[in-house]
Design a protein around this nucleic acid. Structure first.
Length: 271
DNA sequence: ACATGCGCCTGAGTGC
DNA sequence: TGCACTCAGGCGCATG
């Protein structure tokens, strides 16, 4: 669900409200949540009394850096981190998994499909975790990006979705980026020309930045740290629009499963 | 190296 | 209205 722009929006929202505050209380409202995350309650409770020193993001992962420890969130498909949501809407109560109270603010973790996960890591060992995630799509340098595409023989869509290779893009942004770059999602990454790589790189970055300015895409459940919807879905050109005319040439947009992921593209514009 | 299928969850939508 | 089925923003794992 939350891809790079959404996680970045949440990071900024939380930073403005709870940075440098002390975590006073944690309550786990759903035991399986910790079991799945492989964290014991005792371990989690060691965060109590610690100050939140910074909030960082790499790809779709959000890092809450406390004194000595880092709590990492991956929001899966439907995870939401919302501050001071009260009352909790009736239909969300059974998906409310965790609350963390930072002085006067309470952060709620709500996750309908429960694909989200948390990790608790000793700050000294954080680089091990970071190294398993590919370079962030907004940070990666052009030369690295080109090298990445050239050394793999993967469909470009598959490559962009692989978080170990490049992190932050999910199904929505991948389809939107490839459409704007006029590249067919099934093109093998090592067959792209220098021009195409350059255009893909530039479009990927500018699209992500634009989506952050619009506070992300709310297709179904996504809301930001204040519980509000994003606006970038209004600028989607292909995602969720199979069969509709291509905004460039009018050809019906085609739908196909690539890598088990629904993919929408224009068979005429995307070569 | 790369592709494919499954499982983890819940809710919304469709067709009968 | 009920039921069966498909689909959905992700990812890890097993198999070929």
């Amino acid at each position: 669900m939350p891809e790079l722009p959404e996680v970045e929006t949440i990071r900024r929202d939380l930073t403005s409200r709870i940075l440098n505050k002390t975590l006073n209380e944690i309550s786990v409202l759903h035991k399986n949540f910790l079991t799945k995350s492989k964290i014991s309650l005792t371990e989690l409770l060691t965060l109590k009394g610690k100050k939140l020193l910074s909030l960082e993001r790499k790809g779709k992962y959000l890092f809450l850096n406390f004194e000595e420890k880092t709590l990492i969130f991956h929001l899966g498909l439907t995870g939401a981190l919302i501050l001071d949501l009260h009352p909790i809407p009736e239909n969300l109560k059974k998906h409310h998994l965790l609350t963390m109270t930072f002085e006067q603010n309470t952060l709620h973790y709500i996750d309908i499909r429960k694909f989200g996960k948390i990790y608790l890591i000793d700050s000294l060992k954080i680089s091990f975790f970071l190294n398993r995630i590919g370079p962030d799509a907004l940070q990666i340098e052009f030369e690295k990006f080109r090298e990445l595409l050239q050394k793999h023989n993967l469909k470009i869509k598959t490559l962009l979705l692989n978080q170990r290779l490049i992190s932050g893009l999910g199904n929505i942004y991948t389809d939107e980026v490839l459409f704007r770059a006029k590249i067919n999602p099934e093109r093998l990454s090592n067959t792209l020309s220098e021009e195409e790589i350059k255009s893909l790189y530039e479009i990927m970055k500018s699209l992500l930045k634009e989506a952050i300015l619009l506070r992300g895409s709310s297709v179904k459940n996504y809301v930001d740290g204040e519980g509000k919807r994003g606006k970038f879905q209004e600028r989607h050109l292909v995602y969720g629009k199979k069969g509709r005319p291509c905004p460039e040439c009018g050809t019906p947009l085609q739908y196909k499963k690539i890598n088990q992921r629904g993919t929408v593209f224009c068979p005429n514009c995307q070569k």
